[in-house]
Amino acid sequence: MTDDELPANRLESLALTAMFFAVALALLLAMPWATRWGQASGGWWTRPALMPGLALAGLTLANLITLGRALTDLRADPPTPEERIVARQNILGWLRPVEFLAYFAIYVWAIGHLGYLLATLTFILGLMLRVRLTSPRWLLTGVLTALALVAIFRVGLGVWMPAPPLYDLAPDALRTALIRWF
C-alpha cells in the first residue's frame, strides 16, 4: 500500500466484491464439470471434489458477507453523485495496469526474437519514457540497469534464455558468445 493512495470508494468496493462473489459462485456451480465426485472405492474423505468444494463454499460465503456488508452500508448512507463519478473513474482505473502488463507481454515475446539484452534494454527504456523518466541521466541509469541485469543473471548466475533467430546472423564465435551471455 503506498502512502499516496486514497481510501477506496464504497461503490468501487461494492463492484469488486460483487465481481468476486460472482466468480466464486460460478466456480462453485461449475464443480460438476470441473471435477468429479470420484469412484466409490475410497471413503468420502478421499473424494476429489471435497477440498475444492469446501474451499469454494468458504470463498462464496465470505464474499457474500462482504457483499452484504457493503450493501447494508450503502443503504444506510446512500452514495452521493460525486461518489458515483469517482467510482466510475476508479473502476476504469483498474485498466491502467493492463497497459503495463501489455508491455510486459511484448517484452516476453521480444526475448524470443531479440534476445535478453536487446529486449530488456528496449523494455526498460520504453517503460521509462512512458512514465516520463526522460532526462539523459535517467536514460543512462536505464541502460546501466539493463547491463547490470545481464551481468548478474545471464553472465553471473547463468540463467538460460531462448536464443533468438537474430543471433544466427552473427559469425559462429560471436553467435556462441551471444547465446551464452546475452
Partner: peptide, 14 residues
C-alpha cells in the same frame, strides 16, 4: 517510485 516499478517489473520476468 516509477524507476522502482520499472526495475521490479523487469526483474519479474527473469
Amino acid at each position: 517510485k516509477r524507476f522502482l516499478g520499472v526495475v521490479i517489473l523487469t526483474l519479474s520476468l527473469i
